[in-house]
Amino acid sequence: MIAIESLSKRFPRVTALDRLTVGIEPGVTGLVGANGAGKSTLIKILLGLSPATEGSATVLGMDVATQGGAIRERVGYMPEHDCLPPDVSATEFVVHMARMSGLPATAARERTADTLRHVGLYEERYRPMGGYSTGMKQRVKLAQALVHDPRLVLLDEPTNGLDPVGRDEMLGLIRRVHSDFGISVLVTSHLLGELERTSDHIVVIDGGKLLRSSSTADFTQRTAVLAVEVTDTDTHPDGAAALREALRQAGVALHEPGPDGGRAPGAGHLVTLDAADESVYDTVRDAAAGLGLGLVRMEQRRHQISEVFTERSAGDVA
């Protein structure tokens, strides 16, 4: 989809991208980095709108330096900032943008109706956009990026300004852009944890440099975590501690309660451990039974990406 090769972008006072090399495959890819990490700069270069200082990049096999026009015909872009005129309706606006992408008038109208429906805008699409909520505006912005049926969309901070519900809806929609529409997605966020359920692959950049690029499944599955909650008994007033001790002796890799372990309600009763394979479940069951503890729950959790990265980047990316 995208191949980035030793790409640098230097502004007079800052280096926005610093010899970045990364490949991006079809699917949903999250591009994560703190504010100023160079995410938006990278998107502008990928659209062929801003020349790189050095290095090269191709999008859909086309060179960003020489084939920008052809790239932009088959790529959609959703900017991070507001970009909607308030006195125009979503329908009129998206039809116009479809025509700007080269769609004939009739096709532009049909695609607009389809696309607005797919992003979840119904009757309100005929009203001026000035009266829309942030969530609705974000949907129109997404619709104009999808209306010409691109092969790839570049979404710059699509969840910015949304409340938690709106954010989840937007993330679900982004997932659908790939799973249902078959369009690959590069989506940016300055929040590390946000894209993990949405993305197949995560690229983390910091200060214009690549920090990490790996498949989401890769590190979330590799580090599948089992959380176990047990009751306390008279013999074991701290059931969790007793279980922890028993499991440690059985050779299970336990997670030490984190620094925030005490904060979450009931966290003290939780024993978390790496579920390397199926036998761990039996070990836990046997250990709990041996101690006479009641098993309240035993659930599999995925590691949060942020936890995976905390050791590496000392939390400054999140």
Binding site: L49, R72, E73, Y77, C83, M100, S101, G102
Partner: peptide, 9 residues
């Protein structure tokens, strides 16, 4: 709105 134009051909 200009970025939306310039992100097109």
């Amino acid at each position: 709105t200009t970025p939306l134009y310039f992100s097109r051909p």
